[in-house]
Amino acid sequence: MSRVSVAGVGGAQLEMPGMPQRLFPATPSKLATFADCPRRYRFAYVDRPSPPKGPPWAHNSVGSAVHAALRSWWELPRDRRTAGAARQLLYGAWSPTGFRDADQSERWRTRAAGWLTDYVADLDPGDEPVGTERQVAATTARLALSGRVDRIDQRGDELVVVDYKTGRVPSTDDEARGSPALAVYVLGVQRTLRRPCRRVELHHLPSGTVASFEHTERSLANHVRRAEDVATDIAAATQALEDGASRDEAFPAVTGRQCGWCDFRPSCPAGQAATPARETWSFLAEDDAAGSPAAGG
């Protein structure tokens, strides 16, 4: 007998006899949050109101400004898509939040403007993308997946997913192959635009390098299987909460070095005890030589 499901706490699917099962709505960020730390997932997607986040991070300010400038650059008339325009768009999108002081913010604004100048110099302003900041979606047997693609290019008869990166370390082909988000984007482009799409590219602006991977049906199926496994774990945790487990039991904290930069650290005693807090500018290349999360997307 088929079943229908209705949303419970945190998006849990409560089944009712007689109708098809409802798909679990998921984004790459939502799935990655639970895979990294169920408690962080609870703070972000289950608790209402959601606990306040900690202060903004400087490396995220860098990434956000670069992404915004590139989106706006492609929205300009073709004859205005110049390196100078890219720099001005970066200046307009810049936010000083998260930096140690105004001098540090200014240094990084100048540095990011240099990345953009070099990057757009290698672009053909007339090579119109199929989409920029394009929302795409796809379904599997159990998931309703969605995501926003930085850029979609036309290459011959196929479409290519392009993702901008501004972190300290250049991207690798293995990173492109293993990225769950990029796999979701490929599936979404295929389903939303109904065009062939297999190739994903990570454009690392600080180094001017491109990492890539050509997905196959098998590689995409592997990503889907892992995403569905995470969704199953989310449903189990949510059901445990419905059945009377405490919130901390149903969504345990996974502690470690990452607790130093977790947005929900102020609300998580376990994370506070695990490691000292990081300074909000400490993941900028000139300020820290240790490991960190990918900066700015």
Rank of each mutant, 00 (worst) to 15 (best):
A69Y: 01
K30A: 08
A83L: 08
E15K: 15
R142A: 15
R194S: 14
T238V: 10
A85M: 13
A113M: 05
H203C: 13
L90F: 02
V149T: 04
E15A: 15
S95N: 05
L202Q: 01
G11L: 09
R218S: 12
S5L: 12
A250E: 01
S171R: 07
T255W: 07
L90W: 03
R48A: 15
M16L: 15
A290W: 05
A44G: 09
P276E: 08
R39K: 15
S179Y: 03
D127T: 15
S246E: 03
W115M: 02
S29M: 12
L116F: 06
D103F: 13
V186G: 02
R80Y: 13
S179K: 06
S64P: 07
W94A: 00
R109G: 04
A250V: 03
P196T: 09
G18I: 03
L202N: 01
A294W: 11
W281M: 05
D118W: 10
R111I: 10
E228S: 03
A121R: 15
T192Q: 04
R39Y: 14
D118I: 09
V230P: 01
A289H: 12
P180L: 05
V224W: 04
E217I: 07
A65Y: 00
A231H: 04
A231K: 00
A12G: 10
R151Y: 03
S179A: 07
P52G: 12
D163C: 06
G98H: 02
A183L: 03
A227F: 07
T140W: 09
F213C: 02
T110K: 10
L145C: 06
L205Y: 12
T192M: 08
I234Q: 02
I152T: 03
A290H: 11
S282Q: 14
H223R: 06
L145K: 03
S246M: 08
P96Y: 02
E133K: 09
F283L: 08
A183Q: 01
Q104F: 10
S171M: 14
Q154L: 13
F99G: 02
F24Q: 08
V230I: 15
Q272N: 06
H203D: 10
L284Q: 02
Y91W: 11
T166C: 06
A121V: 08
V162S: 09
T255L: 07
I234D: 03
E279C: 09
P49V: 10
Q13R: 14
A26D: 04
G147I: 05
G63C: 05
H59M: 15
A113Q: 04
T117E: 09
F43I: 02
G84D: 01
F24L: 11
P55S: 14
E106P: 13
G18E: 03
R42Q: 14
P51W: 07
A58R: 00
L145H: 07
R177Y: 08
A250L: 12
P269G: 03
A65P: 04
R39T: 12
S267E: 08
H59T: 12
R151G: 00
F34E: 09
S267K: 01
D173K: 01
P129C: 06
D122I: 13
L202R: 00
V130G: 06
G131F: 03
R100S: 08
A12T: 06
Q258W: 09
A211F: 06
R226I: 07
A141L: 13
D174N: 11
K165F: 01
A137K: 13
A273L: 13
P55G: 10
D263K: 10
G256N: 06
G92P: 12
E242P: 05
N60D: 13
E249T: 15
A58M: 02
Q13D: 12
S95R: 13
E249M: 11
S246R: 09
